[in-house]
Design a protein around this nucleic acid. Sequence first.
RNA 1: GGGGAUGUGGCGGAAUUGGCAUACGCGCAUGACUUAGGAUCAUGUGGUUCACACCUUGCGGGUUCGAGUCCCGCCAUCCCCACCA
Length: 811
Amino acid sequence: MFDWEREMVSCVPEYYKWTEWFFKQFYEAGLAYRNEAMVNWSPTLQTVLANEQVIDGKDERTGQPVIQKMMTQWFFRYTRYTDEMLNFDNIDWPEPIRIMQTNWIGRSEGARVVFKTEHGEPLEVYTTRPDTLWGATFMVLAPEHALVDKITTDEQREPIETYRAQAARSTEIERSAEGRDKTGVFTGAYAINPVSDARIPIWIADYVMVTYGTGAIMAVPSGDQRDFDFARKFGLEIIPVVQPEGEQFEGAAMEQAYDGSGVMINSGILNGIISNGQKGRKNPAVNAAISMLEEKGIGKESINYRLRDWLISRQRYWGSPIPMVQKQDGTFEPVPDDQLPVLLPDDVDFLPTGQSPLKLLEAFQNTVDSEGKPAKRETDTMDTFMCSSWYWYRYLSPHYANGPFDPEEAAYWLPVDVYTGGAEHATMHLLYSRWFTKAMRDLGMFEETMDIMKAHGRDPEVMQLGEPMLKLRNQGQVLGEERSGHYIVASGTWQATKLFADKVDVIDPADAPAKRSKLVVGEIIKRTENLLTVDVGDGELRTVEVVPEAVVNIPGMQGVGRPDQLKHHLEIQRMSKSKGNVVNPDEWVARYGSDSVRAYMMFGFDWQKGGPWDSKGIQGAVRWVNDVWDIVTGYNPPAHGNAEAERDIERKLHQAIRRVADGLENFSFNGSIAGLMKFRNDLKDVMKSGSVGAAAWKAAIRDMLLLMAPFTPHVAEELWAQQGHGYSVHQQSWPEYDAAKAAEDMVTLVVQVNGKVRDRVEVAAGISEADATTAAMNSESVQRALNGGSPKKVIFIAGRNGQEPKINVVV
RNA sequence: GGGGAUGUGGCGGAAUUGGCAUACGCGCAUGACUUAGGAUCAUGUGGUUCACACCUUGCGGGUUCGAGUCCCGCCAUCCCCACCA
């Protein structure tokens, strides 16, 4: 149900005023900052992109390559809440989403170790395997690492500069497309291994990312395959430090890196300690290594995250303006609250300059600072994920003027109970949203809400979680229908391997004529304009061009047939105009009514999975709705029925209540409707037997309509009114489930022999173990299996929750 | 390379904690009603088998009195991440 009084639009000033306000709040709290950083730059879009918007080194929208570039940009301290965002204890979110977010945040446990160059410059690295420190035989810096310039020797300067220039030019795709073939250049400088005092060469290579860890690694070729590949390629030393039982590793002879468990060798004081191959303190060798590093003061335990701060600047027009002005001295200050929002100008020119139109608009940029001196407005706008990171708070009170939301409303509604959306939002929208809410909490934005909650007797503790949505479920997508192509007979003239058809008839495959040289007979696999690809059987394809004046006969198609009306084969895939498999719900609603279409949408699929549309499958829902209509309007029950039958329909009603309610809570809507369809079948049986009296019948119908209301709201309302009940069916209390009423008197005792079902016996519900055993022993199948002997064991399982009792005889 | 999900009749899909596998629906078959049927009604419909009976949840093992469900190893498909040190 939609409450249109709470409609809001994120690109109107009434909304984005508060998006800007949030930015300002974050800025003043130190959660927003400006920094120079290596960013993803899209030359195509002429803007920077968040890591989340770069897929395989390409921009997710255009598929064009993205390059790395140093730029000054606005960031949010996304990493402030890494550990809290890894905690899902108090929210009910799907496991796959939690795993994806966990992997995205990418927490890794290890240590930072400070190496020194020969000349004494400190060179810090991050490693998850400090136990392998003695095996570090060289170091690798990212090409962009700040120390490269300083340490490179004169002889190596030229190749280093060439390599760095090349790395800067190349896109991330090119860097990873090289796969395992390592490249790199020696700087000419050496470092001292702080534990072994070995003099080890320092290289640069693009397999080390400047953005992760410290942008520098200690390379342990005996334990890391990437380092191993690099060492082999450039002839660097390999020292084994972890040796599995029964092996005798020799650095020169190793064929690949070994990262499994074993015992430490060549490792000074660590020799003999077990390294179990794990990361963190769980590994005895790592544990010992970290203690040693901290004791000697050359390193310390350290946690590292894959997650970077959230880059929110965009060099484009669309998006909320960043409410900052740059003063003449170059520093920034926020726009005063009473001047918010900074409006997006509507007189911009979209010129192909490669720059944001705002950059070209002097009138927008020129302003004054808080002292009245000339200043320049920030022309970057915010990532539109900003707008979607808090919209549900605005829903509460879309026209509220004193803040982003009305705390009175918030105290009633927050947090969101259930949120549904696609799983594709896992690492973007849903993670941003969690960050945003945690930041709001820490900035005290929920304080007033919590006071009001307290005043209304609601426990405000839940707001301390800083979680926007307590329960999340992902829905699947309804895909296009699988459809076979038209089966055709095309005739015309051949030119080389192509048939120019002047006549095309769509036929039933059963009526296909025999193969003839002048004909093409088969299913259309593909059609582009008037060019057909036809499967003539045995996987053989023919190309047919339908000439402009050709006669096209399509049975059931009115008017003169055109080649573009010929259907081609479609596999199950997403609906899209270009594939021609879009199912327009309006057409189906016009044909069957919205309740039937709605019921089918809920019944025909696993809601969390989605699946292909099936234009025949909808018939089941249509028949159900029609049947219910006929049952309710077209049957006159007798004044009095028999008690047993009335008890039985009451029982079935309560079983239906249970199924419908369970389905609604678990998002198994198909189960709910299956329960209702079954009840429809039960009612039809009652109609046939005429055994239920008017009062019991009317009561059953009444509750069924209540159960149907969420699924077929219009038909339920109409029938509710026709039954003489007051408006509205949607404002009644839900039928209460009564387990006693749902319980069966007689149940089927399932008799198993060695766990396999061999017999079924009708017995009274709640049968005792002794009686069940007697019944089982009297079963012919059991007698046969026992063959005169006695059972080894008999296991009785009483029926729970309406389940049948079972008895298993072990022979 | 790492992580995740899925795999059940001809099809969509059911199956609380391990306890009658295939609910509900589509389709199909036979019959009825009909000038007609893409309507409706009845019956049937996992497989092998005349039957008795046996087998069956991607494949192979295991745990258990009992496995679609739990564990181990494969295979297939899809998704996410990816030189992350």
